Computed example of a mutant assay.
Amino acid sequence: MTRILKYLLKILLFFLLFLSTGCQPDLEFLPTPIPQEPPVEPTQASLLSLTQVTITHQVPSPTFPLKSPTALIETPTPPTSNPANNFSAILESPIPADFPQNVDASYLYGTTQNGLRIPHDGVEFYQPFGTPVLAAADGKVIFSGTDEINAWGRFTNFYGNLVIVQHSNLGNAPFYSLYGHLSSLAVKNGDTVRQGDLVGAIGASGGAFGSHLHFEVRLGGNELKHTANPLLFLQLLTDKNGQETGILLGNIRDNKGALVPSANLVLQKVVEGRIILEESLYQETYSKDIPSHPEWQENFVFANLTPGEYRISTFINQVLYEQFISLQTGQFINIQLKAED
Rank of each mutant, 00 (worst) to 15 (best):
L236I: 04
A263T: 07
I149W: 03
A71S: 15
E41S: 11
F332V: 01
L265E: 07
P31K: 08
P38I: 09
E244Y: 10
L134M: 09
L48R: 12
L249F: 14
F18K: 02
S211E: 10
D289L: 08
K67V: 14
Q58N: 15
P33W: 08
T75Y: 10
Y107W: 13
E74Q: 14
V193D: 04
Q328H: 08
P307D: 04
A201H: 14
H212Y: 05
F324Y: 09
Q328T: 01
F29R: 15
P33F: 09
G115V: 09
K140D: 10
A339G: 09
K240I: 11
P39R: 13
S177G: 15
S144T: 01
Y179W: 07
I252D: 02
F215P: 02
F155L: 05
T2M: 07
L249T: 06
L259I: 04
P38D: 13
H226C: 02
F233I: 03
N334Y: 01
E216M: 14
E340V: 00
G160F: 07
Q283E: 11
S88Y: 14
L234R: 09
S313K: 13
N82T: 10
Q283C: 00
L5H: 12
F158G: 09
I202L: 01
R194S: 15
Q127I: 04
P94S: 08
S106A: 12
Q235N: 13
W152H: 15
V270T: 08
P25Y: 12
S93D: 07
L185D: 08
I312Y: 03
P128T: 10
G246P: 05
V199P: 05
F175L: 10
G145F: 07
S262W: 00
T54A: 11
F155R: 14
I312H: 01
D121E: 14
G308F: 01
T75P: 02
F315I: 00
G203T: 05
A97W: 03
S168M: 12
L27R: 15
H226S: 10
D147I: 06
I55D: 06
G246K: 03
N241H: 11
T156W: 00
P94R: 05
Y107D: 11
S280C: 01
P261Y: 01
P42M: 09
I312A: 00
Q113R: 13
F175R: 04
L30Y: 11
E148C: 00
L224H: 00
G110Q: 07
K225A: 13
N114V: 06
L162F: 12
P294V: 03
T63E: 12
G220I: 05
E279F: 02
A97Q: 13
P33G: 05
F300R: 02
L231H: 09
P69L: 07
K269E: 12
V271P: 00
S280I: 05
L237G: 05
L234H: 07
P128G: 09
A84E: 13
K6R: 12
P76I: 09
G221E: 04
G221W: 06
P69K: 10
P39Q: 11
L213W: 02
A135Y: 04
F302T: 07
L182T: 02
H181E: 08
R274I: 14
E28Q: 13
Q336E: 13
T314R: 03
F155K: 12
L198I: 11
L108P: 00
L265I: 12
S313I: 00
R274K: 15
G246C: 08
V165E: 09
G171R: 05
L277W: 02
G207A: 15
T80V: 06
